[in-house]
Simulated scan of single mutants.
Amino acid sequence: MSEPARHHRPIVAADLERLVEGSVEGEPSARMELAHATAAALVSVGRNTAGDDEPTDRLVRLADTVGLDTLAELWRGAPPDSLPGALWALYLLRTWCTENGSEVARLYRTGRSLAPVDEVVAGVRDDADPNAIAAVADDVLNGLYQGELDVALERGAAFFRVVAAGREFLATDGPDGDAERHRAGRNRACADGLGRAADAWRDGTLP
Results as ranks from 00 to 15, higher is better:
Ser2Phe: 11
Ser2Glu: 14
Glu3Gln: 15
Pro4Asn: 09
Ala5Tyr: 03
His8Leu: 11
Ile11Phe: 10
Ala13Asn: 14
Ala14Glu: 15
Ala14Phe: 09
Glu17Cys: 13
Arg18Phe: 09
Leu19Phe: 10
Gly22Leu: 15
Gly22Asp: 15
Ala30Met: 02
Thr38Ile: 05
Ala39Glu: 02
Ala40Leu: 09
Ala41Ile: 05
Val45Gly: 00
Asn48Trp: 06
Asn48His: 12
Ala50Phe: 00
Ala50Pro: 02
Ala50Tyr: 02
Asp53Trp: 07
Asp53Asn: 06
Leu59Arg: 02
Arg61Gly: 00
Leu62Lys: 04
Leu62Ala: 09
Thr65Ala: 01
Leu68Cys: 02
Thr70Arg: 06
Leu74Lys: 08
Ser82Tyr: 10
Leu83Lys: 01
Gly85Val: 03
Trp88Ser: 02
Leu90Thr: 06
Tyr91Gln: 07
Tyr91Ser: 03
Leu93Met: 12
Leu93Val: 02
Thr95Lys: 04
Thr95Ala: 15
Ser102Thr: 11
Glu103Leu: 05
Val104Leu: 11
Leu107Gln: 10
Tyr108Cys: 08
Gly111Arg: 08
Gly111Ser: 09
Gly111Lys: 00
Ser113Glu: 15
Gly123Tyr: 07
Asp126Cys: 02
Asp126Arg: 15
Asp126Thr: 11
Asp127Pro: 05
Asp129Gln: 13
Ala132Val: 11
Ala135Phe: 01
Ala137Cys: 10
Asp138Glu: 15
Val140Met: 05
Asn142Glu: 12
Leu144Asp: 03
Leu149Asn: 01
Arg155Lys: 13
Gly156Thr: 02
Ala157Gln: 07
Ala158Cys: 10
Ala158Arg: 01
Phe169Ser: 14
Ala171Phe: 02
Gly174Met: 01
Asp178Gly: 14
Arg186Ala: 14
Asn187Met: 11
Leu194Tyr: 07
Gly195Ser: 10
Ala198Val: 11
Asp199Cys: 10
Asp199Arg: 14
Arg202Asn: 10
Leu206Gln: 06
